[in-house]
């Protein structure tokens, strides 16, 4: 498999490591505000979908620029449809939420 890192260009699979689903977001946990409920945390930590088709997932370019990436991969074909820096994805998501 080949992944195109936005910083480093196209590289072989062995430079990357896989983490998992990039569509999950960490529940709020800031004291003294009440944190999210146990159910939300259990879902975030343990429950995963097993989608067939395009899937957004987190990869780490550990043998390259050390960027965390959001890779859109077709789980049926291993086709890589898109690669973004994770930090940019989070920032864009927050901007959308604020707007």
């Amino acid at each position: 498999m080949r992944i195109t890192c936005p910083c480093c260009g196209e590289r072989g699979l062995d430079e990357f490591s896989y983490r998992g689903d990039a569509t999950l977001s960490r529940p709020a946990g800031d004291p003294p505000l009440p944190g999210a409920g146990a159910e939300a945390w259990a879902e975030y930590v343990y429950l995963r979908d097993n989608p067939s088709g395009p899937h957004r997932e987190l990869w780490y370019h550990g043998a390259g620029c050390r960027s965390w990436l959001v890779v859109t991969r077709n789980t049926r074909t291993h086709e890589i449809l898109d690669t973004e820096r994770a930090v940019n994805v989070v920032r864009a998501t927050r901007k959308d939420a604020e707007a």
């Binding site: 490591s17 983490r19 960490r26 987190l58 780490y60 550990g62 050390r66 960027s67 965390w68 820096r85 994770a86 930090v87 989070v90 920032r91």
Partner: peptide, 17 residues
């Protein structure tokens, strides 16, 4: 040493950018 570095990068780039 390696896993903690990866974890810190994850926290910094994904959880608290």
């Amino acid at each position: 040493a390696g896993p903690v570095m990866q974890h810190l990068e994850f926290c910094h780039q994904w959880l608290w950018p």
